[in-house]
Amino acid sequence: MSYVADSSTADGDFTRDTAYIDTRITADGRDGYPVEPGRYRLVVARACPWANRTIIVRRLLGLEDALSIGFCGPTHDERSWTFDLDPEGVDPVLGIHYLRDAYNKRIPDYPKGVTVPAVVDVARGQVVTNDFAQITLDFSTEWTAYHRDGAPQLYPERWRAEIDEVSQRVYTEINNGVYRCGFAGSQKAYERAYDRLFTALDWLSERLADQRYLVGDTITEADVRLFTTLARFDAVYHGHFKANRSKLAEMPVLWAYARDLFQTPGFGDTTDFVQIKQHYYIVHTDINPTRVVPKGPDLANWLTPHGRESLGGRPFGDGTPPGPPREAERVPAAHSAG
């Protein structure tokens, strides 16, 4: 996620800059960056849905020992995401306050928005990639030597074509669709975005009415990508982005599906609702100039029974759930539904 709204067309339609640093970290090192434990640091912000994906996948696959993680604060200035949560505001591994410094190390005077997630080569102090969609796929396919015992198959070969197809529609219509609503520059653009978003949410409700997960009978990459938007829907997108035909809690199938995932290790325990609200309501001053952060909604209902077990499915397939989050990586209880 960039710290600025990307741009809009003459008709007011929001457009996202998708030209990322697309260098890949691979098992064979074909781009010059081989998978090596301890070499890289994943820089994230819990507030960001794109970064939240990488936190989830890293945890589900058990990559904690191989790939360290650095957490930016939920808010930032016009220059960069910053490490406000660390002592003296400096990342203890990279030794920087501004994530932009790692971007400039890779591309001097980096001309684009500084985004998370970003994977940084620790020794060089430079960003290797911020291509969020590819990062999680590579965690599943290129980092296999460092997966935990019992790691699930989030991108199984037999389902990849369908995962890709579903994920693409989820991205264009829902992940990015809420932003098209929130950053629309005209009434017509907003109404177009609104209609597209809820058409897609209705499609998902139909798809998930009789199957527990988006593709196959286990959790896959597609579910991770959808979850991070659903987790932010009532807290942010419904009001802040005017995506207000219905709350998630008023869409029975999607609400049950989201609670099912939230209550699955790796999902709810990586979701920080306080930081999520702080980011959107404080940073987006063009939408919320007062920077007032709402107190609601009540989070306790995320832990209510969802009944999705009746649809069958095996959350982790032949694998097992991850263990508890590491102490240094836990979401504070007051920031979640716990």
Rank of each mutant, 00 (worst) to 15 (best):
A5F: 14
T9F: 08
R16Y: 05
D17W: 13
R24H: 04
T26L: 10
A27W: 01
D28Q: 06
G29Y: 04
G38E: 08
R41A: 15
V43S: 06
V44N: 11
W50Q: 11
R53G: 12
L61K: 02
G62V: 04
E64F: 08
I69D: 03
G70I: 04
T75Y: 07
F83D: 08
D86N: 07
V93Y: 11
L94Q: 10
Y98H: 14
L99K: 07
R100I: 08
Y103Q: 07
K105C: 04
P108L: 12
V120Q: 08
D131Y: 04
Q134Y: 07
S140P: 00
T144N: 01
A145K: 08
H147Q: 08
D149M: 02
Y155R: 02
Q168F: 09
V170F: 11
A184T: 02
Q187N: 04
R196M: 06
L197M: 03
L201D: 09
D202C: 01
L214V: 10
A222S: 07
T228F: 02
R232K: 05
F233M: 05
G239E: 15
F241I: 03
K242G: 01
N244R: 07
A249Y: 02
M251I: 06
V253Q: 11
G266Q: 06
N288W: 09
N288Y: 12
P289T: 02
T290G: 13
P297I: 03
L299W: 02
T304M: 01
L311G: 05
R314S: 15
P315Q: 04
G319C: 11
G323T: 03
P324H: 12
P324Y: 10
A333H: 00
A334S: 00
